[in-house]
Design a protein around this nucleic acid. Structure first.
Lengths: 123, 123
DNA sequence: TATAGCAGTTACCTGAAGGTAACCAGATGG
DNA sequence: CCATCTGGTTACCTTCAGGTAACTGCTATA
């Protein structure tokens, strides 16, 4: 039997893996968006993202800082103010966020249509 | 103290959540890319994605089929051939994949640069 | 004095994602 | 006859992202 070789797509996959490694999870992109929108304080960001908890937020913020996507600055006021701001590098995600945003919007429409079209049949 | 209101960004976040719900995880996008590249058979796809296992692949394929991103067709040859092909809807992900691909490529470059610039100092 | 805000931390727990390996039945090739 | 291909399934196990809740030290406000 002729062995049909599978198409190599490593060159296409590798960058995707890299990107997913940094951006995967429920929260990272949402946090970047929130900060880019102008939220700077910990509690501000927390409140702007429904469902996130302090613990998870703290952890994700550390990750994002390590990846140089956001900056954490402690202002020596009384009481201290901790500000999170986007690093320039965060802008490089604009296209990703835009693409995801558009797709999510379209997908939601599609789902809603399907739901209203298909009359539920009991199960 | 004046209560600084956190910027609302729900409208920006909701579609992102929707998108992540469908596309999240290590494998979904990689599988779509593999199939779009021309891989159709189960083992073909499996071999084209380093690290994936039959079990995970089977599960992810079901998910993707449910979301109408790929189609599973059983050809009644002997022995039976099962072919996975991209649905038209999969094309709507082109921009997402492209954006992620570009970002991943750039990010990899950045990391490598940092690694070669920073001489390791022992720890 | 009590309450609420700030920026988190800690301990504990759950569920889902994912990995490991064996196995199935039918067909083909050596 | 045995190994290997096909398209998966099954049972078992580990990991960890993420959730819950309490709590810290400090300040400001009522």
């Amino acid at each position: 039997m002729k062995q049909r070789p599978h198409s190599e797509c490593q060159s296409a996959l590798l960058p995707i893996r890299d990107a997913l490694e940094v951006l995967s999870g429920k929260w990272k992109l949402q946090i970047i968006i929130s900060i880019s929108t102008g939220n700077q304080r910990f509690r501000e960001i927390e409140r702007s993202i429904p469902g996130i908890t302090s613990k998870v937020l703290a952890k994700e913020l550390k990750d994002l800082e390590e990846h140089q996507l956001i900056k954490r600055t402690v202002h020596d006021t009384i009481p201290v103010a901790v500000l999170y701001t986007p690093e320039p590098y965060a802008c490089s995600l604009d296209n990703v966020i835009k693409a995801l945003h558009e797709w999510g919007t379209g997908h939601r429409k599609k789902i809603i249509q399907r739901e209203t079209t298909e009359l539920p049949t009991g199960e």
